[in-house]
Design a binder for these strands. Structure first.
Length: 254
DNA sequence: ATGGCATAATTGTTATGA
């Protein structure tokens, strides 16, 4: 089973990329973030015609998450399902082929110490609490974490030291989730590789490979012993009108 | 010290991203 996570940065703007890519790569599950469209705007019928089920949780202009799948999704939960108010559409979960799948868009955090930063840390703590309650052992948490887990995930660690997405607090919050029993699939398979998933649109960052690895596919339960591959689909960051993120993927044996 | 570039809301400019 091939699982992909992609911050698409506007689904409507990226449809001409999405559909040929689905046809060419045929992933079993696609977790999308920053769909930037309401549920009414979601292209359900076009996806159906392409052979994909879809569950989605979106809003106007910002945020928005979705899960596309070849098999039918069941037990869909939107948001983090806790008692705190959720004004932003940043999480959705569904069970697909017996595997619990989360698509998450962790808040950006803007600047260290800002209100947005506190919201980000709180959101990661809430995600951890949610995952701790998860009954299904075979769980995948895929998405844009807006945190580079280690210095190896940063093109220039000294430049980024202590900056947003690289602070000790943010990294500790992500480690806290991993410590529930999740493995960072890509890093596990490629412990020393310089692999990024996001490159700034400015300053020729992509051609210079000045990126960060902030998109993750975390796998728990028996899945940890079943993966057969993981990587970054760099081709999708090339060409006209790309998202600033490339899709990342992980493959599991049945 | 800051912007660069991109997107969505709108039509001149702002909010947000990472």
């Amino acid at each position: 089973m091939k699982v992909v996570s992609w911050n698409i940065n506007s689904l409507r703007k990226r449809q001409d990329r999405l559909f040929p890519w689905l046809e060419a790569t045929k992933p079993d599950v696609v977790c999308l973030q920053e769909t930037k469209c309401t549920d009414e705007q979601f292209p359900v019928l076009a996806l159906q015609a392409a052979g994909y089920h879809a569950v989605y949780h979106g809003e106007k202009s910002y945020n928005g998450v979705a899960i596309l799948s070849k098999s039918a999704p069941v037990d869909v939960v939107i948001s983090l399902g806790d008692k705190e108010p959720d004004s932003q559409t940043r999480a959705i979960a569904a069970t697909i082929d017996g595997i619990r799948v989360y698509s998450v868009y962790v808040p950006n955090g803007q600047a260290i110490g800002s209100a947005a930063y506190q919201y980000k840390l709180r959101w990661l703590a809430r995600l951890r609490d949610r995952l701790a309650l998860e009954k299904t052992a075979d769980t995948i948490v895929a998405g844009d974490f807006n945190v580079a887990p280690g210095d190896i995930d940063v093109h220039d660690p000294d430049l980024w030291r202590g900056a947003i997405m690289c602070s000790d607090e943010e990294r500790a919050a992500v480690k806290c989730i991993a410590d529930l029993g999740f493995s960072d699939t890509l890093r596990q398979l490629h412990p020393d590789a310089r692999l990024f998933s996001w490159w700034d649109y400015r300053m020729l960052a992509f051609p210079k490979d000045r990126g960060l690895r902030i998109d993750l596919i975390l796998a728990g339960g028996d899945l940890m012993n079943r993966w057969s591959g993981a990587g970054v689909d760099r081709e999708m960051r090339k060409g006209k009108d790309p998202s600033d993120h490339a899709p990342i993927w992980a493959e599991f044996n049945r």
